[in-house]
Amino acid sequence: MFPFCEDPSQLDTLPWLACYLTTGVHMNFYVSFGTVLLLLAITAPCALAFGFAGAAASRSRILPLSLLGKGYTSIVRGVPDIAFFLFFVIALDQGIEYLVHLARCPDWDEPIRQGANFLVCPEAKMPPGNAAQAWHEAYNFALAVFTFALVFGAFAANVLYGAMRAVPRAQMETAEAYGMTDRQAFWRILVPQMWIYALPGLSNLWMILMKATPLLFLLGVEDIVYWARELGASKTPRFTDYPHGDWRFFYFLFLLVFYLGMTKISEVALGRLTRRLSHGQATLGGEAQRREGGDMQAGAGA
């Protein structure tokens, strides 16, 4: 990285550290933080969408739909995360491959399950064996995102279902009295008001989701935990220019600081969001804001 890094064994502590912390392998470590943030950025809205669909389905008057929604939330919430992650990702992967196999290799006569092996025809391998490594990583990452979204969607569904019920009944009755259809009342009255009731539960979920990102490591994605363990392991001088002892303590400490920092940022952001969503709502928070007056522009009141 720096010109003085030619022979790290001759350097003082500070330049040595500067060289050490900018090696290619450390760059991979820093990139993996991006992986985690990307996972959060994609998973959170997906989980929210899953949750919204689950909650809306649970409320449905159509019996199969409501059973589907309730079944989804109960089953996924009841299974331990790790078990679900280990099972579901494999099942999803094999399910996709099986479907592609059926479509592409109708003449295949060998059994797909051979003992412990799950062997589909080569054309059905997802991703195919000769795809670039980046595609394999993207595929694994996508599986991980989907699984995270499904698991956290179930919890979000439960939170949103409760929030929808917490919106005062009088609001809905008023909407009906104005002649709104069910659909209109749902989208124009219920949904805009439920967020403030959902927020405490959702912010809790967000924190748990953040803490759950090291599960990526379990799914074979090279995330920050993988690199922290790899980089912290003691290195002998023969195989690296930067030999060191067992530094896992420092690397994991760094992860701890990172996650605490993320928590702090989230708390600040969620605090702001709560104030914003309370505005004009028929809740204690909203009422307090109304009494203070002035510090926020008057918006559409409830």
């Binding site: 090696t23 392998v25 080569p122 195919p128 064996g129 000769n130 595609w135 790899e230 195989f239 930067y242």
Partner: peptide
């Protein structure tokens, strides 16, 4: 990609067992 011949071989290793296999400074 599947149309191309199966000429890429993916080599699995652990990357934590020097001198057999390890991750070097370049990652």
């Amino acid at each position: 990609g599947a149309a191309a011949a199966q000429d890429v071989v993916r080599m699995g290793t652990e990357g934590a067992y020097p001198p057999y296999n390890f991750i070097n400074d370049q990652g």
